[in-house]
């Protein structure tokens, strides 16, 4: 029995553990399965960070290749997915740095803002407000809104709320403390709420 299985085996071993073991044994097809399982998420995370489609394509390829090369370094005390996300986040930040040469890019960027920490727009939203927009229009609103968040808030929101990582996993992935993740998450959620209010608030006279 390998080390990863011992550590993960407390409850049910995660199905990725067996796949990772097969990859280590030289089974490329097992890696194919892992790529297919997580490619959408990795692409999405890369897009959220780089905000650029070509960069996201490159990040996705580089992240999966790097994970393959380094698979022997994967410790198994975190999930394979979390480990992969960490690689993808780092690749994305690196890509950003290249693009904006000379400008520092980190997840601590632009963090000093109190925007949204005190809710100002207190109008209630229409019931199922997203249904007042077509799919493409809604996607555009959601993209524009989340792109306006400071980088360090946006990444925390994406990992925690969109991709479903736990607070601990998010902290580990980004190298942040748990209180820092919590405080960023609250502010990210409140800022997004505030910004979406403009589109989703109940229109005057539209009450049923």
């Amino acid at each position: 029995m390998s080390t990863i299985q011992l550590i993960a085996g407390e409850n049910e071993p995660h199905p990725d553990v067996a796949l990772v073991d097969r990859v280590r044994g030289g089974d490329v097809l097992a890696y194919d399965t892992l790529v297919r399982k997580y490619d959408r998420q990795i692409f999405r995370i890369a897009q959220h960070i780089t905000q650029n489609r070509e960069d996201a394509e490159d990040v996705m390829q580089d992240a999966f290749l790097k994970a393959y090369e380094k698979i022997d370094q994967f410790q198994g005390n975190s999930k394979f997915y979390t480990w992969l996300v960490r690689i993808a986040v780092n690749e994305s930040l690196m890509r950003l740095r290249k693009r904006r040469t000379g400008k520092m890019v980190s997840i601590d960027e632009d963090i000093e803002t109190d925007e949204g920490s005190v809710p100002r727009d207190l109008a209630d939203w229409a019931p199922d407000p997203e249904q007042n927009y077509g799919q493409a229009e809604l996607a555009e609103i959601l993209r524009k809104t989340i792109q306006g968040l400071p980088q360090g808030f946006r990444i925390v929101f994406v990992l925690r709320d969109v991709e479903g990582l736990s607070t601990e996993e998010t902290a580990e992935t980004l190298g942040l403390s748990i209180p820092a993740v919590k405080s960023r998450l609250l502010r990210a959620r409140l800022q997004l709420r505030e910004r979406l209010s403009r589109y989703f608030r109940r229109k005057r006279g539209a009450e049923k």
């Binding site: 790529v35 394509e57 209630d124 809604l138 993209r143 997004l192």
Partner: peptide, 29 residues
């Protein structure tokens, strides 16, 4: 604030804003 914040999270969770089209997915793969 509570209800609209919950809704904010739910909307982002349930809408794919950066999808990976099948042809691009196969090419990258």
């Amino acid at each position: 604030t509570l209800n609209t914040t919950r809704k904010t999270i739910e909307i982002y969770r349930s809408h794919e804003i950066y999808d990976l089209p099948p042809s691009l997915r196969e090419r990258l793969h």
